[in-house]
């Protein structure tokens, strides 16, 4: 229990620090939002009034605190370029990115674990060696390049989907998932290759332990030894890795959304950075960072729940 309390304390401190860092980063931006919003209507009096209205005349830490308490309550400020609440701008986008990330994560998990086990089980065979080399290459393919290849093959040549015509959830759920499958594939292939490789080397590492020899001497086959004894130990680092990789997946969805023209948080983030709409960019950055920090926290808790030895160190 003390472990959980300690970890939760660190979690809250990290969340505060992460949001502070992001907030400060967006404060030192040279562009002045007031000048930008007023454009040609700029007069010193109007600028002063707007500055007061936006609260820009107060200290940085006061503004951080105001922003943070608003953020937690769901009041995220006003977008500079759309002149509506950030919450309105974000509406609907979060679900799209969440669906895409979860789908990719599911694909990674569903493919990498059987693949990693199979690679360890059939170590030394021709097919295994080819797959391991192929795996190494797939690890190095950037997800957005893969996305472009998938668009070409499945979108333009085979015409399985129309690139750029995203089907919203409200229109058709299977249609939406069918469209999201391809970006999810682009995100998950390099990640799957890494995870499978990790699992393979974890299993092969465990196979050198003494208990494996004992298990063999009891007459177990290689498959029995792996599935009954080794896998329990070897899965531990992989479970942690999978939990933490959701963060990377969210990050790669930022760019893959751009390739497939998926209207999610990633596209909005890129647009808001290009348009210098910092309240929106700040909210998205902090939201993604929070997801990452919380996932790492859950991964820690999960690891210690599976393996109590971790608690001691």
């Amino acid at each position: 229990m003390t472990y959980v309390f300690k970890k939760t304390g660190v979690l809250i401190a990290t969340l505060l620090l992460v949001s502070l860092l992001a907030f400060l980063a967006f404060q030192i931006i040279p562009a002045d939002p007031v000048t930008m919003m007023l454009g040609t209507d700029y007069t010193p009096e109007r600028a002063e009034a707007l500055r007061r209205q936006l609260g820009l005349d107060r200290g940085v830490l006061v503004r951080y605190w105001d922003w943070l308490s608003g953020f937690v309550r769901g009041d995220m400020g006003v977008s500079y370029s759309y002149a509506v609440e950030v919450r309105e701008v974000l509406r609907g986008k979060i679900a799209v990115t969440a669906a895409l990330s979860l789908l990719s994560w599911f694909l990674v998990t569903a493919v990498s674990i059987p693949l990693g086990i199979a690679l360890a089980r059939y170590k030394g065979r021709k097919l295994e060696q080819i797959t391991v080399s192929l795996n190494q290459i797939l690890m190095s393919v950037p997800s957005f390049f893969l996305g472009i290849l998938l668009t070409w093959l499945f979108g333009l040549v085979l015409r399985l989907f129309i690139p750029g015509r995203f089907v919203p959830f409200s229109e058709s759920v299977p249609g939406c998932l069918g469209y999201l499958f391809f970006p999810a594939l682009a995100i998950s292939v390099p990640k799957t290759a890494k995870t499978a490789k990790l699992l393979r080397s974890a299993i092969l590492g465990e196979m050198k332990q003494d208990y494996v020899l004992t298990a063999y001497s009891h007459g177990n086959s290689r498959w029995m030894v792996i599935s009954r004894h080794v896998l329990r130990n070897a899965l531990l680092p992989v479970v942690t890795y999978l939990a933490m990789s959701l963060a990377d997946i969210v990050a790669s969805s930022i760019i893959v959304e751009q390739v497939f023209v998926v209207p999610g948080l990633g596209r909005l983030l890129i647009a808001s950075i290009s348009n210098r709409d910092y309240p929106v960019a700040l909210c998205i950055v902090v939201m993604i960072a929070f997801v990452v920090v919380v996932m790492n926290y859950l991964a820690d808790l999960l690891t210690q729940a599976i393996d109590p030895r971790v608690r001691l160190s």
């Binding site: 620090l17 860092l21 980063a25 030192i28 790669s252 760019i255 950075i273 950055v285 960072a289 790492n296």
Partner: peptide, 20 residues
């Protein structure tokens, strides 16, 4: 500070820095 910085995915941090 280091730990918090590594909490951001690297592409995200790079984007923030480019925005700055």
């Amino acid at each position: 500070v280091n730990d918090s910085l590594t909490a951001f995915p690297s592409l995200l941090t790079a984007l923030v820095l480019i925005a700055v």
